[in-house]
């Protein structure tokens, strides 16, 4: 059966996209579970590294390489390093066991969250989402983004800058050495 060349390429492309989606999903879900449930906080922090990288991969699949780079630079390079510094600076073994919750609370909490996940799943798969006919092409997005940041989004942009400055000053103030 003759297959249209363009269709074939398109099919192969989808296959690669779907395969990479599933590989990233395996990475994100397994490392996310470790980040959420690991007893050892250092393990959890390092596992978060792979979760954040995987989510950056999703952003590439979804068509914004800029956001992926931002995620890697700020989240992985900044926030995660900060978190690991925090772990290493405050890592004194807790007196009691680290999972100090009662067994019943733990089972109950897990049940409640499984219920929440079930409801979310039903809502997501049960809703008939309105999807655009025209997909957003993963192309050049930097120029329109920069333009929008200085026109439509100029107030949030400036506010974000001021917020960052305030956070820097506040953080430095909070951890200063107090003279007693």
């Amino acid at each position: 059966m003759p297959v249209d060349h363009a269709t074939q390429i398109a099919a192969q492309n989808w296959q690669g996209l779907n395969l990479s989606f599933w590989l990233i999903t395996i990475l994100v879900i397994s490392s996310g579970a470790v980040a959420a449930f690991a007893r050892n906080i250092v393990q959890a922090a390092f596992s978060l590294f792979f979760t954040l990288l995987g989510v950056a991969g999703y952003y590439i699949l979804l068509g914004s390489a800029f956001l992926a780079v931002t995620q890697v630079v700020i989240y992985v390079g900044g926030i995660l390093v900060l978190l690991i510094f925090g772990v290493l600076l405050t890592n004194r073994p807790l007196e009691r066991a680290q999972t100090g919750m009662g067994r019943m609370y733990f089972v109950g909490g897990l049940l409640g969250l499984a219920l929440l996940l079930g409801v979310l799943y039903r809502v997501i798969t049960g809703t008939s989402w309105v999807v655009s006919k025209t997909f957003i092409e993963p192309g050049e997005s930097l120029r329109p983004m920069g333009r929008l940041l200085l026109t439509d989004y100029v107030l949030p942009f400036e506010l974000a800058g001021v917020t960052l400055l305030l956070c820097l000053i506040g953080a430095a103030y909070l951890v200063r050495r107090r003279e007693r």
């Binding site: 956001l67 931002t70 978190l83 925090g86 953080a171």
Partner: peptide, 26 residues
């Protein structure tokens, strides 16, 4: 460009939040 722009703003605020939270924590 709403998707990536909101993402960038959320990442900026997450950086702020992490810095302040770690300062409080220390």
């Amino acid at each position: 460009m709403a998707g990536p722009l909101f993402g960038v703003f959320i990442i900026i605020l997450a950086a702020c939040e992490a810095a302040i939270a770690l300062a409080i924590l220390l």
